[in-house]
């Protein structure tokens, strides 16, 4: 099987290790990976802020960049949701681009979705010696991927999974929300970090760069020893 990697802009700039881990993991599972160089950002920031013309420009750019990819895998529920749920909506009434948007939406998979539902693997042969907890990224709810990451995590050797209180409550990232309402967003991430600290784990696992930079930023500010770990990094370790 062959896939194209959608790294996402946050992943590209801030968490390249997540991309490297994704590639290594996929190759280990017998999947060959390419990286279309034209890709930049899916346009979600513009879409969420109501700049839909800009979002359409970026969607066209992404649709073109991945036009030749048989399948697209991205280590981000948020960007996968943008492509799968919002791209077709954005081109409502534009037959040419709507069809292309629907086509890309069908070919695109968030990493845990791809592993569990396309490759049909749950045990990817990963190992993690220590305790970890899991924060559910909000966009996985929208994509209906409530169990997939947990099914993968539970098969990791040596990992002791500690349940996280309010594991499915938003961490307070929300893109521009975190900048527009730092007090509300700050209260949310402070609670999230406190729940994580209470679990006394070595690492908190999540599937999205947005959550990781927000939660990680708060944990770092508090001087916490808990490290942030993307699902791809966890699964790439053997």
């Amino acid at each position: 099987m062959h896939v194209s990697l959608m790294i996402t802009c946050l992943g590209d700039a801030f968490f390249p290790d997540v991309g490297v881990a994704t590639v290594k993991l996929l190759r280990r599972l017998g999947v060959s990976v390419d990286f279309p160089q034209a890709q930049t950002c899916c346009g979600q920031p513009h879409f969420n802020s109501g700049y839909h013309d800009d979002a359409r420009d970026l969607a066209r750019h992404a649709i073109t960049a991945f036009a030749k990819s048989p399948l697209v895998v991205t280590p981000s529920g948020s960007c996968a949701a943008m492509v799968k749920l919002e791209y077709p909506e954005l081109f409502h009434g534009d037959p040419t681009w709507h069809d292309r948007a629907v086509d890309l939406a069908k070919r695109t998979h968030e990493l845990s979705d791809f592993l569990v539902n396309v490759l049909k693997v749950e045990d990817v042969g990963a190992r993690f010696d220590g305790k970890a907890t899991y924060h559910m990224a909000c966009h996985l709810r929208g994509l209906g991927l409530v169990d997939e990451p947990l099914r993968l995590i539970q098969k990791v050797r040596g990992l002791q999974l500690v349940p996280l209180e309010r594991y499915d409550e938003c961490c307070g990232f929300g893109g521009s929300f975190a900048v527009r309402y730092p007090q509300i967003s700050g209260a949310m991430v402070t609670d999230k970090a406190a729940f994580i600290e209470k679990t006394a784990v070595d690492a908190v696992i999540a599937t999205d760069a947005g959550c990781l930079m927000n939660i990680g930023g708060c944990l770092n500010r508090k001087g916490s020893k808990v490290r942030i770990l993307h699902l791809a990094e966890l699964l790439a370790q053997t």
């Binding site: 307070g172 929300g174 929300f177 509300i184």
Partner: peptide
């Protein structure tokens, strides 16, 4: 309209 993280809960 902005005072939401759009988490979908």
């Amino acid at each position: 309209p902005h005072a939401s993280s759009l988490c979908g809960a």
